[in-house]
Amino acid sequence: MDYLDQLEAQSIYIFREAYRHFGKLGMLWSIGKDSTVLMWLAQKAFFGHCPFPMIHVDTNYKIPKMIEYRDKTAKEYGLNLIVHKNQEALDEGMCPGKGRLECCKALKTEALTQVTKKYEFEGLILGIRRDEEGSRSKERVFSERNADSEWDYTDQPPELWNQFKTDFKKGNHIRVHPILHWTEIDVWQYIKRENIPLIDLYFSKSGKRYRSLGCAPCTTPIESNATTIDEIVEELKNTKQAERAGRAQDRENAHAMQQLRKAGYM
């Protein structure tokens, strides 16, 4: 077993624990590389029969190509896809211009809370990773959120020996993080090994590529000539840039992500 095999086996174990313990389970699919790897792992865990729906929280501001790709892929795979927008906020004119953090809060965090409540999800599977940023680095694999999706990160329960938090108060839900232990390079090497289809925004066109995907107004591509996965891996090995450097909301203040995530952000 090589290192990727070990990562994969652990992720599959986590998927199966989540499916076993939560009656109502959903998986966030952002169209990005991480959640696409999640989809792939779910296929493996359940032998091609992913037994829960995908959820896309659509902010209305996503890079248009992402929506195109989403609808095409959903059709091809016959995905059970829930698309949710915080329509109320959009109707009231929410946009990044009103403040990036406010916008993220309304169109992502609140939208996610709405869809969680609407479908009464007990478990939500997300593709976050420890190496993305500080508050995620301190996450648990099974991480509880209260009825308002809030995260009490100052008092997280013990998590050891693959015994995850599966008991919780009704109305709360558990965020399940099957690839928490993967790094950005792991993700790319796995995509390459498994030959996983991926949206082409990640590959360089006229000297630029997206390293992390998000909403069009707040996401900037990086300078890059990497057109293949191998070139991307090589680039990542040598870069000193952070993965989410192109995500504007992260840099609103020193603890922006912590504040967002405390309130229920992915």
């Binding site: 329960p157 013990p158 938090k165 919780f168």
Partner: peptide
């Protein structure tokens, strides 16, 4: 093994 008390893992 772990022991659960009050919904949380409390002992290992």
């Amino acid at each position: 093994f772990v022991i659960i008390d009050d919904l949380n893992v409390c002992g290992g």
